[in-house]
Design a protein around this nucleic acid. Structure first.
Lengths: 136, 136
DNA sequence: CTGGATCCCTTATGATACTG
DNA sequence: CAGTATCATAAGGGATCCAG
């Protein structure tokens, strides 16, 4: 298979939690890892407004390779966030659609995206400042 | 330096947005990438309840290498999410603390974490089902 | 059209050793 | 204690060719 769908970096090394409620960060982190994944977020966003076909997604997310799109979709499907529906027509047609779970995920992701958008400037400025201090 | 603080994978290929409001996903995505980063999230969580020292963090996030902790902290510092305070004592002491920006980020991150925690079981189940269907 | 399989280069990350 | 430097390896990801 070459590339596993159960990436090693999502197996977490059981950090010792201070005492708080985030006692089970390991499982949570593997989910955050998916959200943090560059392409997953794009795909989820693209599927916001209804099902899409493979090449449709590929065109919308201009820049993603076919390989990565396939892998990303498989990962999302595996996590139950996306469904894959095959229409046995000629030529074949495959639709991808968010599940209820996937749509639920959209909310917090959007919230985060919104935060990011609102503080984009601040962060960019911080980066510039930091880089100027350390580059020269 | 070996490892740059401006990772290549955060330079985004400008996906063609449908038409919606997420017109500037590139910058946003680079922020999401930081949040999605395995260690960043842990560090941010660990700093929730006040400043921490380097080795203190290292012990709390059992499993992180000192290299990764350093890199993660530098990244967070660069983004203006964390401050680094050096006490020129012997032995040296360095405190890391969330900035206001960092504390602001905590909210959406926690929301996401909460969602993840609540749906952990569903996702785990989906993964198992998927794997069983495709492994055997 | 929708992918699966390969090849191959780039990045990310861990382990280890060394320093102010 | 708080890092830096170096090395080795694994994971990420693009290009390309092939097949149902």
């Amino acid at each position: 298979m070459g590339t596993s769908l159960r990436p090693a970096h999502t197996d977490f090394p059981a950090p010792q939690m201070p005492d708080r409620d985030h006692a089970d960060c390991r499982g949570v982190a593997s989910i955050l890892a998916r959200v943090g994944d560059k392409w997953s977020v794009f795909v989820i966003m693209m599927l916001s407004d209804g099902p899409k076909r493979f090449n449709e997604l590929k065109r919308m997310i201009n820049g993603i390779s076919q390989r990565m799109l396939t892998l990303t979709l498989r990962g999302l499907e595996r996590d139950g966030l996306v469904t894959r529906t095959i229409f046995p027509t000629i030529p074949p047609r495959v639709d991808y659609e968010l599940t209820d779970l996937g749509r639920g995920l959209q909310q917090p992701v959007m919230a985060l995206g919104l935060w990011a958008k609102e503080h984009q400037a601040q962060i960019a400025a911080a980066r510039t400042r930091f880089d100027e201090r350390n580059d020269t």
